[in-house]
Design a protein around this nucleic acid. Structure first.
Lengths: 350, 350
DNA sequence: TCCATTTCGGCAACCGGTTGCCATCGTGTT
DNA sequence: AACACGATGGCAACCGGTTGCCGAAATGGA
């Protein structure tokens, strides 16, 4: 037991210096590694560091300008499988690039979001990544624009990931994935199986991600010369419960359809259960498709035909783009492609 | 456009002071809010703050001892549904208590874990929460003990969540959930349906969470006077693919069983798909049960009978306990109960 | 009118690091 | 033996805040 008061609390660089019989600057230099220090001094210092179990205060280093950069990730709910994957991508890439990663979930509360972004500005975060669709209102644009400006003026960066862009001139990085295109391809595939009346279980009517997917649904119909019955597009949110509720409602209401396209796999999962509960088989009686290709999609029964979205890649790209932006191309806008993955939940119309 | 060079970069408290014609101390006091400042000075300062869009540097405040506390959360993979829920609980509670929340995924790499904990010590994090089972080796204990000590000596705290505890004397907070008890109840339920040969799809043989669940499986058999066939307990990991692979292997090998208990719902999902692929019905031909009660469990077909683990609560408790510990009871050790939730995947033996 | 008491705000030290600059020391060269 | 020079390591200023302490101004009372 050589330790006594030493481990009573964090020790400072001066404590180390005193113990090694040198000045604080020397300790700093030994630890920094570049400045020339004689072997004997170095070993004495390192000895003291070990004895005291010293670690330099990262915050103090940051103030002095040599800290570990930080990056923040804001999403509504980390519990959703797709965003969890995005979080994974963000965290991995951040770590690869030597950044620390702060997380905040907002539970959809705009106030939380604004406050958190302000905190991140105070933390001098290198970038703040905002994830997930939203209503594209003037209020949204103004608020987001304000966040973008204040981050930019502090040398930081706002990244919009799967969120409505702000129009030209805003200092933001935008990364989107192709909701409309994916939905178009998916619905085209369903229609190609001969289905004429396909129910659409959508998300919020003003939610841009939901809108994109709905547009794809509509466009695919038109491309085949079909005019979809407006009664067939329902609105809810992106949860499993919404899918379950909407599906039950549709059946109770006596709507006619032979296929269902859900705005997300979660919605599809709820819908599938509702279908099963009603004694219907999929795809025998009804075909079903989802969107997102969450890992569970293939373990539903039947395995769900869906649209793959490269969420993890999206997250990685978000941090890479935000951190690696060049003065020439300050405001990048990326659009990632998606592709449909055909499994067993869609069958030709009987 | 009143702004010019102002938004070129972050402004300091001295910039604000200069613009308001006061000293930095006064600005600090106005922003602090408690110290008496005349109305006119205050408004001038606030004006300058708004003009410059000034936010105090959180790192500098931290060095001065008035920062926002931080807390870190380390897990193997945020993509797993159960741990994502725990992360959610941690983040929520951290936010409620005014803490920032850093996240790190280790992908099972011990080295990452150690390095990250060291960074967190440097960040002066209030607590570091380590999540997820592990092999309980001497090497594990020593390494973890070392992390616990060094955090404790820095005034921080290590929290082990669902991880093997370290034995008495280690400065850690331990929060566990009852793996053995839950598995016991679940398997008892299965056996009560008349099944005699129930296959166990386990996790890693040295993984403590997996071991606990396996012990419960064994104990439930013994309690009924049964002696389980060792050939019926298989080992893999906690992934969907492991369940799928193990299940296929068991069938190919011609093992006889009428029920399957999987170590996690993910494993159960993979097993279910394998069963379906083999043309078997659940629970008609084979009964199946999982563990964790992830949200998707009820959307599998049939809805999965499983054991509910209060993951979100676990996360919340972890931060509350770590932050709220008292000098009298420094090292708490909590064990949360679990309960089985009966759905449709287990039926009486034909 | 003068003094006592608040009210208000600035100086300077401090938090825990980093780093530019300079003094010192030892060594090699002529 | 005198001199130059590179290798070391300390002093002090700085990063961007907070706060104890003290003096000046303003206010109130006698």
């Amino acid at each position: 037991m050589t330790r006594k008061s030493e481990d009573a609390g964090r020790s400072t660089i001066r404590d180390v210096a005193a113990r090694a019989g040198v000045s604080a600057s020397t300790v700093s230099r030994v630890l920094g590694g570049v400045y020339p220090v004689s072997a004997s001094t170095r070993s004495r210092v390192l000895r003291a560091v070990r004895d005291l179990d010293y670690v330099a205060d990262a915050r103090a280093k940051a103030v002095a300008g040599v800290g570990t950069p930080t990056l923040a990730f804001v999403l509504e709910d980390i519990t959703g499988p797709s965003f969890a994957h995005m979080a994974y991508g963000v965290e991995r890439e951040a770590r690869r690039l030597g950044h620390l990663c702060l997380v905040c979930t907002t539970e959809g509360d705009v106030q939380h979001e604004v406050e958190f972004v302000e905190m991140m500005r105070a933390q001098r975060a290198a970038a703040v990544i905002l994830v997930g669709g939203s209503a594209d209102t003037p209020e949204y644009r103004e608020r987001t624009r304000r966040m973008a400006d204040s981050l930019a003026s502090a040398g930081s960066r706002l990244v919009l990931c799967g969120r409505p862009p702000l129009g030209p001139g805003a200092p933001v990085t935008v990364i989107e994935y192709d909701n409309e295109g994916g939905a178009y391809a998916l619905v085209a595939h369903v229609l190609a199986q001969g289905h004429q009346r396909v129910l659409f279980l959508g998300g919020g009517a003003d939610h841009t991600t939901a809108q994109g997917r709905e547009r794809g649904y509509l466009a695919a119909h038109r491309a085949r010369g079909l005019d979809p019955d407006p009664a067939l597009v329902l609105h809810g949110d992106f949860t499993r419960d919404s899918g379950h509720r909407l599906m039950r409602g549709a059946m109770k209401q006596g709507l006619e359809f032979t296929a269902v396209v859900a705005a997300t796999d979660m919605v599809a999962a709820g819908a599938l259960t509702a279908l099963h509960e009603a004694g219907l088989t999929v795809p025998g009686d009804i075909s079903l498709a989802g969107y997102d290709d969450i890992p569970f999609a293939r373990d539903l029964y039947p395995a769900l035909t869906t649209v793959h979205v490269p969420y993890e890649e999206l997250g990685r790209l978000a941090v890479r783009t935000a951190l690696g932006r060049t003065p020439e191309h300050p405001d990048e806008h990326l659009l990632l492609g998606t592709h449909v993955v055909v499994r067993n939940s869609v069958a030709p119309k009987a």
